[in-house]
């Protein structure tokens, strides 16, 4: 794929993350959940890379593996030119400050017993350097202003905040270490529509001001389309289509991407009447006994014998547009 990209901040090459399934008294391994199976992509500096897919497709596992919350089964993760897939916890520590994460559920990702200021302080002082009390206080109010919270609220507790405000605090906490890359795992899916738009706009503004890079994980194609520069569509541990975000609406090729697109709700009444709907049959197969060959074969109307034998490789169809399918 696009290798030796000078602008690349993060390169993932044939990443595999298999979790053993253990059973019985002796914890014998009886199989593997292939959560991520041979995934490669490049995230460019200052850009947003979007990962889309349904629950269980492995998109969150990719994010967690990049943060090295999981140690990958095999594959390479190159962050700013350095291989990080096998670093020890100690070696990983400075890099962890440079890659931050924003979580989906703003209700469970904040400690209910800490005030907002104290939550941010923890993230500020974690670099191990000495900090003046005043400096910390200034940084806290700077961060809160940056995400659109009133600095007076530093003494409040998470339960006093609304969902949108909590997510803003989650973003402030991620910014506290001055990261270059932020892994956003479904940052807006728990929020109301009007608040969702506010948070998306905030993320875009911060990217512009601070030159941040995002790995944006979500299941809502319209949200990802709005914020991402490049989009990868995942299905059962594989990337099935990877393209520039401007391509997806009119030029996406893979039958799964097409189905996802047709499931995206639109609010244009007249366009909706004309749109052809693709309702997929069945459900995502369990990743424990994923079918051999293309993972999408069980729900795909084009599935042929070839698809049942081997996983189709991700091939370039046009400039920067990769598709893994034999039939389209």
């Amino acid at each position: 794929m696009q290798s030796d990209n000078k602008d690349a901040i993060l390169e993932v090459k044939s990443l595999k993350m298999h979790f053993p399934v253990r059973k019985g008294f002796f914890n014998k391994t009886v199989g593997y959940v292939k959560a991520v199976d041979d995934v490669s992509f490049v995230v460019e500096n200052g850009k947003t890379f979007g990962l889309v897919g349904e629950s269980g497709c492995g998109k969150t596992t990719v994010g967690k593996t990049i943060l090295r919350i999981n140690t990958p089964t095999s594959g390479e993760i190159i962050y700013k030119g350095q291989h990080i897939e096998n670093l020890s916890a100690k070696q990983m520590a400075p890099i962890r400050r440079d890659i931050q994460m924003i979580f989906q559920d703003p209700y469970s990702s904040l400690d209910p017993r800490q005030s907002l200021g104290s939550i941010l302080k923890e993230a500020i002082v974690c670099d191990g350097k000495p900090h003046e009390r005043e400096e910390i206080a200034n940084t806290i109010s700077e961060l809160m202003v940056a995400v659109g919270l009133d600095p007076i609220m530093a003494d409040r507790y998470p339960h006093e905040l609304s969902g949108g405000q909590r997510q803003r605090l989650g973003i402030a906490r991620a910014l506290a270490c001055n990261p270059s890359l932020i892994v956003c795992d479904e940052p807006v899916s728990a929020l109301d529509v009007s608040i969702q738009a506010q948070v998306i706009n905030l993320l875009r503004d911060l990217q512009e001001k601070r030159g941040l890079t995002y790995l944006f994980i979500a299941h809502d194609l319209a949200v990802v389309k709005n914020i991402a520069d490049t989009i990868a569509v995942m299905y059962l541990g594989h990337i099935v289509e990877l393209m520039d975000s401007s391509e997806i609406y009119e030029h996406s090729i893979h039958p799964y991407t097409q189905a996802l697109l047709s499931a995206v709700p639109i609010t244009d009444y007249y366009a909706e009447k004309k749109r052809n709907r693709i309702v997929l049959e069945g459900e995502v197969p369990s990743p424990i006994n994923a079918p051999a060959g293309c993972p999408f074969q069980t729900r795909c109307k084009f599935a042929s014998d070839k698809c049942r034998k081997a996983m189709p490789p991700l091939t370039e169809r046009r400039d920067g547009h990769f598709v893994a399918c034999y039939n389209v």
Binding site: S162, G164, I195, A197, K225, N226, Y249, V264, T267, D268
Partner: peptide, 25 residues
């Protein structure tokens, strides 16, 4: 109107920002 504008559109251009409703419910 605000609610409709807040919904991300698939056919919008990349530069287009969402028009959010300010404040909270």
């Amino acid at each position: 109107k605000g609610l409709l504008n807040s919904v991300p559109k698939l056919d919008a251009s990349d530069e287009e920002r969402l028009v959010a409703i300010k404040g909270q419910p």
